[in-house]
Nucleic acid binder design. Structure first.
Lengths: 226, 226
DNA sequence: CGAGATATATTCGATGCCGAGCATTCGATA
DNA sequence: TATCGAATGCTCGGCATCGAATATATCTCG
């Protein structure tokens, strides 16, 4: 409905939890944690409460009761409304149907990689490779454990997806590393040359920089692919 | 330095641009656009100006001059400081070295997939497959065009990475689809059964829901792995 | 040469996000 | 039984984000 609430997937998680049964916010967060949803949906307290408030304002959930247990802070128990159920299904439908462009940090990093010295970059990429291998191993172990406990794979597709992405990134980084080493990546020669001639003590020679940039600019100018 | 500025990769992009030469914010944005960095770094005007302000406050960039061209709004030209160069290199180093956990929307969607009816999910996954194929084709074409224009691959690694991730997601979705169809995904039987017996008109039978949840809960309870 | 479209360049306010902090209760331990 | 720490449950303020709005200059085309 309101596209404004559609920003934070935590709101979707809240709707789904409340569809299962009415809860108060803290209980929602604990349930999500138990189900390991915190690994696929960014969850923190501040956001949770503002998301809940926003959902209520839009009529997607409503207060079912405000109980007070002894002298503890009052808890407001929420339930999902019909509009909320509809919204959850619509939203989920969109998320599954339409890929959305995202901006992983590593993609940004790659786009600036030539800023680093080639040998530094190589060293870092190798460390990354190791880290990715470890993450992947840990991820596999977690999933195997869940399977051993009797959780059908359908209920943990997130993990499988994450692992698939990790494997792909690992392969990419390994390939990139070796292509830098053996020089089959177009541009490495230029890269080394630049860092040899134009960077000294982290300071760039402006003239050399201008020349290099102009050269590359020529390769990007003109109509973009049409 | 201040981990606060490290949130938005746009700040890194600004530092890198200003390292090349001093510019005013609008010029930065146009340059980033020309170089197609807007595809790997989220860029919009509001953020750009606040990021610039923040960088200045932290001493990573400084105003070089405020020129006025005719009667157009005053432009402030910034230059990067020594601290800024150091910060850019450190930041980039970290980004290349350390994988960071991110939260792609599709991962969240997968974690709630059983909420949808199996046949609806299948239909949506197939549409996604098509969309992914198209994106991939477009991406490949763009990169080929850049190559044809003489841009060495080193200077467009972002695109190659994105393509690798797209291919991996495509493979994952295709595999998932077929495993749902042929029933080799553990849990599909339960999934179909649930949606047949417990959902009517988008309304859940609370008793049935409780029973099903309890069953799955058993499979997740206990000490998580280890 | 006048009108509208496009490019230049920034500001602003509404909203969202986040993590630290606060206040209470319960359980274990000495 | 006094105390320390963990769990429960929420609030608050600061900062980030974003898109729309603003204002002028230049280009274009009949």
């Amino acid at each position: 409905m309101a596209p404004r609430t559609r920003n934070n997937p935590l709101a979707l998680a809240v709707l789904v939890q409340l569809w299962e049964r009415p809860m108060h916010p803290y209980e929602i967060s604990m349930t999500l944690r138990e189900r390991r949803k915190e690994e696929s949906v960014r969850l923190n307290f501040g956001s949770l409460y503002s998301v809940v408030e926003s959902l209520e304002k839009h009529g997607l959930i409503e207060a079912a009761s405000t109980e007070r247990d002894g002298n503890r802070p009052t808890r407001t128990v929420y339930r999902v409304t019909d509009a909320g159920v509809t919204e959850a299904i619509d939203w989920l439908t969109d998320l599954v149907r339409d890929p959305v462009k995202e901006f992983p940090q590593f993609e940004a990093a790659l786009s600036f990689l030539p800023v680093l010295a080639p040998d530094d970059a190589l060293r870092l990429l190798r460390i990354r490779t190791e880290a990715l291998r470890m993450n992947l191993t840990a991820n596999d172990a977690t999933r195997e454990a869940a399977r051993a406990q009797g959780l059908p794979e359908l209920f943990e597709l997130e993990g499988a997806y994450e692992a698939a992405m990790q494997r792909a990134e690992l392969a990419f980084v390994e390939d990139l590393t070796s292509r830098i080493v053996n020089g089959t990546l177009a541009g490495v020669d230029l890269w080394r040359q630049l860092h040899d001639t134009l960077v000294h003590d982290g300071r760039v020679d402006p003239d050399e920089m201008a020349k290099a940039v102009a050269e590359l600019e020529a390769a990007m100018g003109g109509p973009p692919a049409s």
